[in-house]
Design a protein around this nucleic acid. Structure first.
Lengths: 244, 244
DNA sequence: TCGGCGGTGTGACTTTGGTTCCAGCGTCAG
DNA sequence: CTGACGCTGGAACCAAAGTCACACCGCCGA
């Protein structure tokens, strides 16, 4: 339909990218309904310049300090945004899930801000990358894009405010409870190793092991290798959500 | 010039508000240059609906859970955005300084998000409050407002990412060093009591006292009641900025 | 069958930071 | 002068969490 125009995709992303089988790089409209309402010209622009990439789990996409611009729309899987401390301990800042996006600098000509964190795929992941200039164009003339952008940013902002508060003022028990609840998404079991859990929460495996056993002893969870079952949902919520 | 239209200003803000002497509530254009380029209709809307309020230090403006919408543009002084943990300890998330703004929900009709933190004035402060509907209007039709909003939000986002990392992976020494450097803004001395310092960093006065003395013993700072002098700027930076 | 190896359990120890309690010191109003 | 109050110093103690070392179990491939 439209000739593919090659452009510099950012870094490692391209290296490991394998174009998915769909016609263009435009993400599913079911996940990003606001795209359906765009002007024809915008749709065309999107179709021409968006690239869908697809990668296995734990694919490294962005490093701290990378100068990136544009928007990463997640279609499948998830992106994990995390930091790495001086001692090499890492902690997850947030996930970008299907239907969400990671919007980076727009003013990509000057002040392409260096991204302050790392990004990797979490699970087999497909994302549509809209280059900075293109996104800026769309943002300038499409109210729907403006709104989407605003919500994405302010949503993350609120999330991060909560995270700061959580990490600063809650013990590990509560933080683990909170983490598990968020991850389970209503389900009763989370598939995760204690090692991974430790990395998400920026702590060590041993500490997670201890804490998890304490929670198990209290009857809140039960664990087996690679799995954590949420036994007492109610008490877990009470433990995690101190605002109650 | 334009008749003042009274509207419900949010909460406590109004209670203590005393209108400043300038003609309208529109903030200084020197601080917010993007406002100068707006269409005449927008300028009129701003002039009609913006309210300037002015308050002494430590005036409580927003509580967690308040349903607020709109933008707070800081003209003088500063706003301090902070959280309060279950045990009553507080920590500062960030400051909104002159020329900056605190942009809250825009979709103020539905989903007026509850604000997740507290806001108070820090120093004698003047702010211009643009109501939610008005800001939404401006945002919809003024590219400059869109851009300003985007930068404000993504700037905060990056700040908060750094804060999460800092609180999670740095010791108090480093966090205090970092805090003092940011506050000094190039100067060599910070006017702050240890009590206040403790509140900003979500710790206790005694701990700050100890840590500060340790830093003093190392020759990094020197302290007197209500003041902290930055003695060895270089080593302070090295201590705070572990990325070096 | 025999090692690896990934995932986990556990004890002992250290460090950091939070808590409690009290003492000193300067300023300022009465 | 004096007492109250705000700010700081400092000891003793405690709790949470990070660190180190090692042991165990199950699985899988050589």
């Amino acid at each position: 339909m439209v000739a593919a125009i090659h452009l510099k995709l950012s870094l490692a992303a391209q290296k490991r990218a394998s174009y998915a089988g769909d016609v263009m790089g435009v993400p599913d409209l079911s996940l990003f309904p606001f795209l359906a309402g765009l002007q024809p010209a915008s749709q065309l622009l999107l179709a021409e310049r968006t690239r869908r990439i697809s990668c296995p789990t734990s694919t490294h996409l962005v490093s701290r300090g990378d100068k990136v611009a544009g928007a990463y729309l997640v279609v499948r899987g998830a992106l994990r945004v995390y930091y790495v401390s001086a001692e090499g301990r890492e902690g997850t800042l947030y996930w970008v899930e299907p239907g969400q996006s990671c919007i980076l600098a727009l003013n990509c000509t000057f002040s392409r801000l260096a991204y302050p964190a790392w990004v990797e795929s979490d699970g087999k992941t497909e994302i549509s990358i809209i280059p900075g200039e293109v996104y800026r164009e769309l943002f300038a003339r499409e109210a729907a894009v403006q709104r989407f952008t605003f919500e994405a940013l302010s949503g993350r902002l609120f999330e991060l405010m909560a995270l700061v508060e959580e990490t600063a003022s809650q013990g590990l028990e509560a933080r683990i409870a909170s983490f598990l609840l968020r991850r389970a998404k209503g389900g009763a079991t989370v598939a995760i190793t204690q090692e991974q859990l430790a990395r998400h929460l920026a702590t060590s495996r041993e500490v997670v092991s201890r804490t998890l056993r304490r929670l198990a002893a209290l009857g809140l969870v039960s664990a087996e290798p690679g799995l954590v079952h949420l036994v007492d949902h109610v008490r877990l919520v009470r433990l995690a959500d101190w605002t109650a």
